[in-house]
């Protein structure tokens, strides 16, 4: 007798819930709800001030950095550009697609909605082409919102989402944030060859 697959009901429910939200109130409202939820989660994180950028990096290594705690270990690629090897939603997606083969309908519309210019994506410097799935609308704003609770040497920091890669390998780039940070798309493209997510950290004066 073949062994059955035990579902992670939390993952399944969350992914299907996104589909229900899109159906019931449209992709825009669903996007807003997920982003508000992400920001709300970020607000629960305690504020921290690292004495130096090296200390910030060290906190990533020992997983005490609040950003690391929600997404895993990112690696510094130089010039304040980071690459994240694994998408934090990969286990959920894997669990779902293992059983249902493909993600729910409506996700493409949602992703298009997330990438449209909007007030909230401007505030958190996300989207604008860097979204490759609805999960980006949770992950990217949450990271940016957490960054607002982090200081380095007493100075505030900002995160700019530069690009992201879908499980299919398709890459998305945020031209607006690339232009604003001065990071070349070729640099991000190369980083995304070996990573799923790429962002820039700016230490404010």
């Amino acid at each position: 007798m073949a062994e059955g697959k035990v579902l992670d009901i939390a993952h399944i429910s969350f992914l299907d819930m996104i589909k229900v939200m899109i159906t019931m109130s449209g992709a825009a409202a669903a996007k807003g709800t997920l982003i508000r939820n992400a920001i709300s989660t970020a607000e629960k994180i305690s504020e921290v001030d690292y004495s130096s950028f090296d200390d910030f990096l060290a906190a990533i290594e020992d997983s005490t950095n609040p950003i690391t705690q929600i997404e895993g270990k990112a690696t510094h690629q130089g010039e304040f550009v980071f690459g994240l090897t694994n998408c934090p939603f990969a286990p959920s997606i894997g669990n779902y697609t293992e059983v249902f083969e493909k993600l729910p309908d409506g996700y493409a519309d949602f992703t298009t909605e997330f990438n449209k210019p909007s007030k909230v994506t401007d505030i958190y410097r996300v989207g604008e082409g860097a979204g490759v799935s609805p999960f980006c609308s949770v992950h990217q704003p949450m990271r940016s919102a957490i960054a607002e609770r982090i200081k380095i040497g007493g100075k505030k920091i900002k995160i700019y989402q530069l690009g992201c890669k879908a499980g299919s390998g398709k890459k998305g780039f945020a031209e607006k944030w690339l232009a604003e940070t001065g990071v070349g798309q070729d640099v991000v493209d190369k980083i995304l060859d070996n990573h799923m997510c790429c962002y820039y950290l700016k230490v404010l004066d």
């Binding site: 159906t23 019931m24 109130s25 449209g26 825009a28 409202a29 669903a30 807003g32 709800t33 508000r36």
Partner: peptide, 12 residues
């Protein structure tokens, strides 16, 4: 935030 759900639901 709340109205967006209501508006979206009406549209849907």
């Amino acid at each position: 935030a709340i109205a967006s759900s209501g508006f979206g639901a009406s549209e849907a």
